[in-house]
């Protein structure tokens, strides 16, 4: 299958700290790829590098066959790369519709057309009822949906989701999973950082595991869940064998 995004040996150094260490992964067109890993593994840093908010210390990012390393975020957005922020960044002084319209303006110079398109996107992610509400008045779940809606409004080819399910309760997660599935079904390639394993298991076709800045494993969600390297990354050195021991005993 064709690959849309290829991250090649990307490293990021903050002074003495190597946050990302020669990480490589690919996202194939039309699929949902997940990036998981313990806290502090460098997932969000890697997203920031892909979307141009930080330059990598080493390595390259290829998108649709083009080297896009070091391009600024607004230009990447125009190429069709959208992202959400882990810590939601609403335009707090604006309404939900106006928030989404900023994204919709990318392909639509006309204000009326952008506002109308914003309404369509809002309904797609379940914000249709809240269009004229102030973004500052939204709940956490609402803000996560707003992040998603704004990113979708630029009509991306590649959508990077940074923990859009974090902070949601189980029923909100159940509501959100089909929304993400539907976005993928529309032909938008998705790369998601996610801690909610239940969602990763049901959504992702391919999973990469990042730990201490390195990709330590990759494969189908089922294969990843039983990989001893992954278990150890989350639970500590030796955990996999101890758990195996418990299981045998």
């Amino acid at each position: 299958m064709a690959e849309l995004l290829r991250v090649e040996n990307v490293s990021k150094r903050f002074g003495g700290l190597l946050a990302v260490d020669r990480a490589s992964f690919v996202a194939e067109t039309g699929r949902i790829t997940a990036l998981i890993g313990p806290n502090g593994a460098g997932k969000t840093t890697l997203f920031s590098i892909i979307t141009g908010f930080q330059p990598p210390s080493e390595g390259h990012i290829r998108y649709d066959g083009v080297d896009i390393t070091g391009e600024p975020p607004h230009r990447l957005a125009r190429r069709g790369i959208a992202r959400t922020f882990q810590i939601v960044q609403p335009f707090a002084g604006l309404t939900v519709r106006e928030n989404i319209a900023v994204g919709a303006h990318l392909g639509r110079p006309n204000r009326v057309a952008a506002l109308a398109a914003a309404g369509d996107v809002a309904r797609e992610v379940g914000l249709g009822e809240l269009l004229d509400r102030s973004a500052a008045a939204l709940t956490v779940a609402g803000r996560k949906r707003l992040e998603l809606a704004r990113a979708l409004a630029i009509e991306p080819k590649l959508l990077l989701l940074d923990e859009v399910l974090a902070g949601l309760n189980p029923s909100e997660i159940r509501d959100m999973v089909p929304v993400i599935r539907a976005i993928c079904d529309r032909g938008i390639t998705i790369v998601m950082i996610e801690h909610v394993m239940q969602a990763v298991m049901s959504l992702a076709e391919h999973v990469f595991v990042l730990s201490e800045g390195r990709i330590i494993a990759q494969g189908s969600p089922q294969a990843i869940a039983s990989d001893p390297k992954v278990v150890e990354a989350y639970l500590g050195h030796g955990a996999a064998s101890r758990m195996a021991g418990v299981a045998h005993a």
């Binding site: 979307t51 908010f53 600024p72 975020p73 607004h74 230009r75 957005a77 125009r78 959208a82 992202r83 922020f85 960044q89 609403p90 335009f91 707090a92 002084g93 604006l94 900023v102 994204g103 990318l106 704004r150 990113a151 409004a153 630029i154």
Partner: peptide, 13 residues
Amino acid sequence: RENEDAASALGVD
């Protein structure tokens, strides 16, 4: 004005 990072992620220079 509201959020420069969020704006640039949406294609705003």
